[in-house]
Design a protein around this nucleic acid. Structure first.
Lengths: 204, 204, 204, 204
DNA sequence: GATGAATGAGTTTTCATTCAT
DNA sequence: TATGAATGAAAACTCATTCAT
């Protein structure tokens, strides 16, 4: 039967429009920032009518939410897999830095959206970005705790150290962006690792 | 002549109004965030007419800019003094952490304005907050360079490490806020210092 | 041949769809009022695609028109039959009240549609509801005229008295609804009849 | 001092704008009905900017509410005074009819707004019109009760009879409008009175 | 300087209707 | 016939800014 095929093609088309909208949002966000993001512009950029946006999304907030979600999904998934994997704690942190820097090396402009526009994007209920952030903090903290248990790291307040670590990575990314650095990710990841690994290490 | 006195009184009154407006902005910013800051509300909160705002400031952007400036001035001045002072590099970093944490311990809500609302606040030309941030990065980097020169710290990319350090401090503040921590600033500052000092230390 | 059968079945199905749409409209009208009636909701409620509505009806107005028509048809037919029947004028009025109250006792929510949403529903050309109302007025007026001719009622402006009578009945229904009365229709019909019969009666 | 004068003039001007808006709403309501009432048109009709509407009223609902309120205020006040006055019950009802007819004779178009657009105008919370209507019903019912107590009227369900009476008066107005009647108010009021007085009268 | 009424461009959102499949 | 994705005109509402007093 070709009913299935039709269904399939239809679904594909739908996804295409939806994705087109999300891409448009991301593009606009990167190009002009969140302040000047209007539904009008999104529609124009996506090449659809304004009304179409409301066919796929309930309101502006949802579009924004979905777009950020889609953009950051890969990073979130990768980091999460990495942190909850089987490697040793120090290896995990090293990987984390590398992964983080690599992602934003390829998607430099997303950092502005992710970290500069943090919180403001959403209404009070919807702090999704923040939730994602909190999850990262907790996962890193778990890794630190494991390191302490294994005697690799000195005892510490793991949640706070985790926040420090993550933010330090962000700082590194931002500094790279500001300095116009492209490439050389490994060296920078190394520096983060060096400082933190030594800083955390149990001192004998 | 009492022309002078009049002039004086006038000036004093003017300063009072101006300050009143800035205080209103800060209060509103802390209370409701940047999204819901309107000139209308500022005027109401300050107890002046809407038109008065435009007597003292060119436009909304300028009001916001001035208010943030006024709020963060003390911190900026203190950090700047500290970083460009005569202490040893490691002592400076330690002081920096302590000072940073202390300030946001007392003005917890300002961190949201300062770091979450970063960039979005201003138009392209006016990245004042960011400028202030860049200055801090440079100053910390200078301290690190000095530390390297003195052989206290291992060689490093000082700008990047500076960004890491500053962001790590911010991470600590945010974690404190999230955890609802009040007080105990010294212990947390100690953890930042511990990790970074050991991390930066020249290894023999 | 089964062409006929096919045709038949087709027609039956068509009628089913059509009726389903009308039922959906009535249900929505009763549930949420006319303000929130959208073609989208009608389609959803009826379980058909939005486009289908336009297969069976020219536009929203026609759907609404047809739905109200279908809902009120029974009452209109009954009242009309009653008023143009063979009973005596006073009996007719008595029956009218009873019938009117009974109908809206069973379909309480329709009164809102019928009398509150009167006129607003339609464009200038289409005052169908109103037309139906005018017909009722004329029919009741004819009954009154007959009563006058027979010497039962005192001479009067029959159209105006008819309007009064009909509206008085509506007033009774609304009061019943407002008071949350269910049942006891006969007693209330009796009061309408009592007042009007005595009021109209030729005084000797 | 002329500070007072200034204040006065200012207030007068404000009231003028406000009243101008309300007049515009009433005019549009009468001319085109409630369906086509848009804030845009109100602004144009009132000769002010759209934004000005929102300076004086919170939203569309409030404008509508205020306009109807202002239009019907005189009638409501007059009827209320009349019904709660010192006259005998039958005189009150007679006066009511006369007053009611007279008002709508002069403001024929308001009846459409008042009675056709009843309820639909407002959101669920705001049934002001309806509240006004309920008050009238109660006041008339009180008059009827008083008539019963005095032995002028036969015992009855006063609230329901009151609703009947009021609606009958509305029916009369609508019939007059439909018939294009102008003037002759007294005769029509007489008919309402005749029918109801005789209908209500205690029968011996 | 101080006021605050008035502005109007700009924004989000709705929804009846169309049309290619 | 039936679909439902797409449309776009129209509506409500916001708010920084101006300007006459």
């Amino acid at each position: 039967m070709d009913g299935d095929k039709k269904q399939e093609r239809k679904k594909a088309l739908e996804t295409l429009t939806r994705q087109g909208i999300l891409d448009a949002v991301t593009a606009l966000l990167i190009r002009d920032g969140i302040q000047s993001l209007t539904m009008d512009r999104v529609a124009t950029e996506a090449g659809v009518a304004k009304g179409t946006l409301y066919v796929y999304f309930k309101n502006k907030e949802e579009v924004l939410y979905a777009a950020l979600d889609a953009s950051l999904e890969p990073l979130v998934v990768e980091l999460s897999a990495l942190l909850t994997g089987d490697s040793a704690p120090d290896a995990k942190l090293e990987e984390f830095s590398l992964c983080h820097l690599r992602f934003f090396d390829e998607h430099q402009d997303l950092i502005r959206i992710l970290y500069y526009d943090r919180e403001k994007t959403y209404s009070e209920k919807h702090r999704y970005t923040d939730e994602r952030y909190r999850t990262s903090v907790r996962q890193v903290a778990a890794v630190l705790d494991e390191g302490v248990r294994r005697g690799q790291f000195a005892p510490l307040d793991s949640l706070k150290a985790a926040a420090m670590f993550i933010e330090a990575n962000i700082g590194m990314v931002m500094q790279r962006i500001h300095g116009g650095d492209y490439g050389g990710v490994e060296k920078d990841a190394q520096q983060v690792t060096d400082i933190f690994m030594n800083g955390l290490k149990r001192r004998v």
